[in-house]
Design a protein around this nucleic acid. Structure first.
Lengths: 190, 190
DNA sequence: CCGAACATTCACGTGCACGGCAAGGTTGCG
DNA sequence: CGCAACCTTGCCGTGCACGTGAATGTTCGG
C-alpha cells in the first residue's frame, strides 16, 4: 500500500527533495515519533519544513542529524543535554552554510569555514576523549584476561596456582611460602 | 573492636585487609553512598563484610569492582541493567574463585578458570563492539572535517566552492521566525 | 466528498538512577 | 560512660527521557 510511490515521470538531474513525515523518519532511523518531537522540544533539531496542515516534514539532512543524535545517545552514551552542547556546533554550522551562500565577501567566507572547522575539531576531540576512556577499560579487561590465561596455563601444566586471581588478598600463608594447598583436604567436593 | 582480624600471624608482610566503610569508598571511587547502596540493591555488588552493627565493609576488590561499574556507567555509557548483565560474569567469577579455592579437583579447577576466561572474553567483546561504533562515528566526523578542510583550501586558493558543504540542500526559507517552542532549560550535572 | 490512516498539541504516567530526609542504631574517642 | 560522627533502613521526591492516551486536525485514495 504505497500510495506515494508514483512521483514525476520526469527525469530530473537534481534529485527531488523528498520530504518525509515523522513516522517514516522514525522507522528509518530507529526512533519513535515521540522521541523525535522531544528532541525538537529540546532544540536538538527542527524539521526542514511543515506541511500546510503543520505536519513535520524532514529532509535527508534532518535524517542524517537524527542518525547522528541516535549514535551519540546509543553508541557514545551521551545525555541529551550533552548532545545538545555537541550539536550547538552543528546548528551553527547549518546557519553558517546559509550565511556562506549569501555572502560574497571572501574574507567572511573564509572565516565561516575556518570556524566550522574548529567546531568539528571540537566534536572530534570530545569523541576521541570518550574513545580513549573506553579503550582504557578494554585494556584493563585485557589485562585481567591475560592474568587468567596465565593461570590457566599453570593449571594445564599441572603447576600450582601461585597467584590468586585478581587483586584479592586473602592469603594467610606463611611468609616463607611453602605451598599451602597441596594436600588433599576434603571439604565439599571430591 | 573489630573481629575481622583473626590473623594470629606475628608479622605480616602482606598489608592488613583494611576494610572501608561506605563513605570512604564513595569518596575514593567518586560515587555517593546512596549510589553504592543502590547498586547493591540491584545486585551489582555485595560488600565483602558487615560489621557487628551491620555497617557495610568493603575490601579492595569491591573498590575495584565499583571503579569498574563507574567506568561502565560514565565512560562506556551503559545502563545499570546492562552493567548488571556484564557483571553477571563478574559475580560468577567471584563465586568461582571461592569454588576454585575449595576445589582440589584438577579438572574442575580447569573448567572454572576456562569458564571465567570465556566470560571475560564476552565482556571484552562487548566493550570492543562499543568502541567500534564510537570509532565509526569519529571516522564519519573526520570525513566531514576533511571535506571542510578541502573547501577551506579552495577558498584560500581563490577557487570556486565547487562542492556544496556536506550532504544536502538546506532550504533557506528565511524570514519567518515562528519561534515555535524551544524550551531551553538545561539542567546538567557531571 | 468521505473515511481510514496519519498527524498535532496538551497532559499525565512511567522507569531509571539516584537525592534527601526521618528515625533510629553503631563506632570510637576522650 | 558520653556523645559526636557515622551508619542503617525506610520512604518519598526529582530530573531525564520518553510512553500513552485524549481530543482534534490533515492527507489522500477511492
Amino acid at each position: 500500500m504505497r500510495y506515494d510511490a508514483a512521483v514525476t515521470t520526469d527525469i530530473e538531474p537534481t534529485a527531488p527533495p523528498r520530504l518525509l513525515r515523522i513516522n517514516e523518519v522514525a522507522a528509518d532511523v530507529g526512533l519513535t515519533a515521540r522521541s523525535i518531537r522531544y528532541y525538537e522540544e529540546l532544540g536538538l533539531l527542527k524539521p526542514a519544513a511543515r506541511s500546510e496542515g503543520a505536519y513535520r516534514l524532514y529532509d535527508t539532512d534532518d535524517i542524517e542529524r537524527l542518525r547522528f543524535i541516535r549514535g551519540l545517545r546509543d553508541d557514545a552514551g551521551f545525555s541529551l543535554a550533552e548532545i545538545g552542547r555537541l550539536l550547538e556546533g552543528e546548528a551553527a554550522r547549518a546557519r553558517n552554510r546559509a550565511r556562506f551562500r549569501e555572502s560574497t565577501d571572501h574574507a567572511e567566507r573564509l572565516a565561516i569555514v575556518t570556524d566550522g572547522l574548529a567546531r568539528i575539531d571540537d566534536q572530534i576531540a570530545i569523541l576521541r576523549e570518550k574513545e580513549a576512556r573506553l579503550r582504557a577499560m578494554i585494556v584493563e579487561a585485557e589485562g585481567r584476561r591475560r592474568h587468567l590465561r596465565g593461570h590457566l596455563a599453570d593449571l594445564e601444566a599441572g603447576r600450582e596456582p601461585a597467584h590468586p586471581p585478581a587483586g584479592q588478598r586473602a592469603d594467610p600463608s606463611p611468609s616463607t611460602g611453602p605451598v599451602a594447598a597441596s594436600g588433599r583436604r576434603d571439604r565439599s567436593r571430591s
